[in-house]
Design a protein around this nucleic acid. Structure first.
Lengths: 204, 204
DNA sequence: TTGCCAACATACCAACCGGTTGGTATTTTT
DNA sequence: AAAAATACCAACCGGTTGGTATGTTGGCAA
């Protein structure tokens, strides 16, 4: 465990996370990242043999940090699987606060840009998104079984929640408005509630 | 009406539509566009004073061509507003075919990339997305009134449909799978059906 | 015919970008 | 303590990029 080595690498990954979310992958230069991380270009190419490899590493880094965030989040507390699912969506909605580049999804942004030109990055983004979605599957499956819901797979609903979130990010970016994203998540919560026959429980 | 002039401009806009959807805005070079359009750089900067201005023009061009496409589409035929809405979503699902770069949304892709660095493009993308969404509002409002649905605005549901589609594009790009996008649209159709109390009409 | 202007084409440039090189300081291993 | 590996730096390089400067061409009005 080298003392400073890990530092530079992690600082570059953090810089990638922040700068790429604001400017996009292609528009972010290696110099941008070095400046933000406070290291030189030599250090950059010591840790990553190319910009593309940094993209892959940034996606993996994103997977690790976000899965830690969600694992520690409080939405796992309810006893009922359905309640946990709703609590998850509510938690996602609460995350939509502050500056746009701070809560949007790195891997969604990168995937959009490089899906055709950098398959390695695309694949790492795919693993990140679907990996996170799959953490929802046990609860969705349990809720479906408990309430006799059918007509779709737990996996497809899990992925749909991520699609709505990704789409919400795009609307928010285009409209420069966080509210747009929140409204979409509200529709998603309403959908999930109705699908699990909670439609009767109208909020006041 | 100049004979060749309009040609070069439109060919550049078509090139932008095709190349940017595949490579993204930042990764698309002016030379890329000139090559694809079969014109020289001189022609490019004659019609657009900068790459950014082309981005704005491409977004506007996208608005025009897509609104013509949707205006001529057959989903307007049903008499009932709700049926028209479902027909629209079914139509959107049917459009998800062929190569990824052929059915994804130019303005969604661009907005994601340039929302922080090119406000003019961002605004043109916003106008395109919300302009299209607003064409759905009369039918949504009529369906809500006819069936006594409330709890959200017609505008927010219209925008939500676009969010789902944009998110579906991202999942499809990340997973390199059209099916992912189609599944999400299925969930959206199920949501809209349930919201308008069509949940009883289960498909076989 | 002349004059003029839009619509291109050709040639070019300065800045920038990803990546390399050769070297040094600091650990780790032997 | 010597040797080897790791972590990092400053300077540099060749190709690329958005943009410009300077023509050239064809149509059209006076």
């Amino acid at each position: 465990m080298p003392p400073r080595a890990v530092n530079a690498r992690i600082r570059l990954l953090e810089a990638a996370r922040d700068v790429i979310r604001a400017k996009g992958f292609a528009a972010t230069t290696v110099d941008d990242l070095c400046r933000q991380a406070g290291v030189t270009k030599g250090a950059f190419f010591h840790h990553f043999k190319s910009k593309e490899e940094l993209g892959v590493a940034a996606a993996d880094f994103w997977s690790e940090t976000t899965s830690a965030l969600f694992a520690a989040a409080p939405y796992h507390q309810p006893d009922d699987p359905f309640d946990r699912l709703i609590a998850y969506l509510q938690f996602r909605k609460e995350l939509l606060a502050g500056d746009l580049a701070e809560f949007t999804c790195l891997v969604g942004t990168m995937a959009q840009e490089v899906f055709d030109s950098a398959p390695a990055i695309r694949e790492a983004c795919h693993a990140s998104i679907s990996g996170h979605a799959m953490t929802l599957v046990p609860d969705i499956r349990a809720a479906m079984d408990a309430r006799g819901v059918s007509g779709f797979t737990p996996e497809s609903l899990a992925l749909h929640t991520q699609a709505v979130l990704q789409g919400a990010f795009i609307l928010a970016k285009a409209g420069n408005s966080v509210t747009l994203a929140q409204d979409s998540v509200d529709h998603l919560i309403r959908y999930v509630s109705m699908v699990f026959s909670q439609a009767g429980k109208e909020k006041k």
